[in-house]
């Protein structure tokens, strides 16, 4: 979970500002992904009904579905990082605290930034090849470049999110007592259980959905 500062100190205010700004982008991207999923559902129904009842399958259905997976495979990647939803093993980090914890977290983020920095240009090259030399889907011959372009775009937003988190962890490494801003924190097993439960409760009371992890 991303923390918001509980004190009125100015410390971390800039981080908080960028966090909110980036979050807008991340959220809109994830919304596009969510609508992609909803569209996929409607498309599937249309396909089955059309084929079964009227013998009219959706033109290029398989190709269309295949290309649309790029929407929900990538666009939400930064949003997911912001909330710390990407899977990791917390066996070791959950036993750390204070400066040690923040330094280890910062190192893990540096590592992730380096990797994403390499993936951005090379996934862009993959798009560029499809754009320059041509690449089309198997049946309907839709161009493939749009879905390939989504990868470097989504990764660039992820890169920004990681840099912001690194700034947050470095700030905490320097001042371990400051209120955490723009970082994700570790959950021990009890907290994890509590989050699962809260999600399940909230779903009944307020209509938010339960987590489906596990």
């Amino acid at each position: 979970m991303t923390h918001s500062p509980s004190s009125s100190s100015h410390d971390g205010a800039q981080l908080l500002f960028f966090d909110a700004l980036l979050f807008r982008v991340e959220k809109s991207f994830t919304f596009i992904a969510a609508f992609g999923i909803f569209f996929l559902m409607l498309l599937g129904v249309t396909q089955v009904v059309g084929r079964k009842l009227f013998d009219i399958p959706v033109y290029g259905y398989i190709d269309l579905v295949e290309q649309s997976t790029a929407l929900f495979a990538f666009l939400g990647v930064a949003y997911c990082q912001r909330f710390g939803t990407h899977v990791r093993m917390e066996l070791v980090v959950s036993h750390l605290s204070g400066r040690t914890l923040w330094v280890v977290e910062a190192i893990a983020i540096v590592f992730s930034i380096v990797i994403v920095s390499i993936f951005i240009p090379h996934s862009f090259d993959h798009f560029l090849r499809a754009w320059e030399y041509g690449d089309t889907t198997i049946d309907a011959e839709f161009p493939v470049w749009p879905s390939k372009l989504l990868v470097p775009i989504a990764f660039s937003v992820l890169w920004l999110r990681l840099v912001l988190q690194l700034a947050g962890f470095i700030r905490l490494s320097i001042r371990p007592d400051a209120t955490p801003v723009a970082v994700t924190t570790v959950h021990d097993i009890e907290t994890k259980a509590r989050i699962e439960i809260e999600d399940a409760y909230v779903s009944d009371k307020n209509g938010a959905s339960p987590s489906q992890r596990g």
Partner: peptide
């Protein structure tokens, strides 16, 4: 193209655009 493999099989109909 990337030079990751020195040879490969491909089928024309998998990607008409290529």
């Amino acid at each position: 193209k990337l030079g990751a493999t020195q040879g490969a099989m491909f089928c024309n109909f998998y990607h008409p655009g290529k």
